[in-house]
């Protein structure tokens, strides 16, 4: 079962990275989302996979009856999902505002902070 997940994770990574290598911020943004999902699935799979038994202790018991899914990766991923959503929102708004101000979505043309040809720094003291 893990093997299938491993291949799926690889696919997510490849797609995410391919998109992030692009020069358009929107594609990079989509890539970041895929990348985040890939990482979450990676953690999920690392905790091993069992079908359909959520880590919830039945009423009246003190410990789970029988084997349950590993709860630790789930806790990590839950926070990771929310954080990556925040990250996504921030990037999206950043891209949107950059597009409004600079008028392009091509990262090669976004050179406000790193101009193509800024001369030598001041040589005096």
């Amino acid at each position: 079962m893990e093997a299938v997940f491993a291949i799926l994770v690889g696919l997510f990574f490849a797609a995410g990275i391919y998109l992030m290598l692009s020069r358009h911020i929107i594609r990079i943004l989509l890539g970041v989302v895929l990348f985040g999902n890939a990482v979450n699935l990676l953690i999920f799979t690392n905790g091993r996979i069992i079908r359909e038994v959520p880590p919830i202790i039945a009423e009246g018991l003190d410990v789970p009856a029988g084997a349950v899914v590993n709860p630790l990766p789930q806790a990590l991923i839950l926070t990771a999902i929310v954080i990556s959503f925040c990250f996504f929102c921030f990037l999206l708004v950043l891209a949107y505002r950059a597009y409004q101000e600079i008028g392009t979505d091509d990262t090669d043309s976004m050179r406000v902070a790193e101009p193509v040809d800024d001369g030598l720094p001041p040589m005096g003291y």
Binding site: F44, I50, P55
Partner: peptide, 8 residues
Amino acid sequence: MLFGAPDL
């Protein structure tokens, strides 16, 4: 959901 993580 299928693999036991309803919260996620």
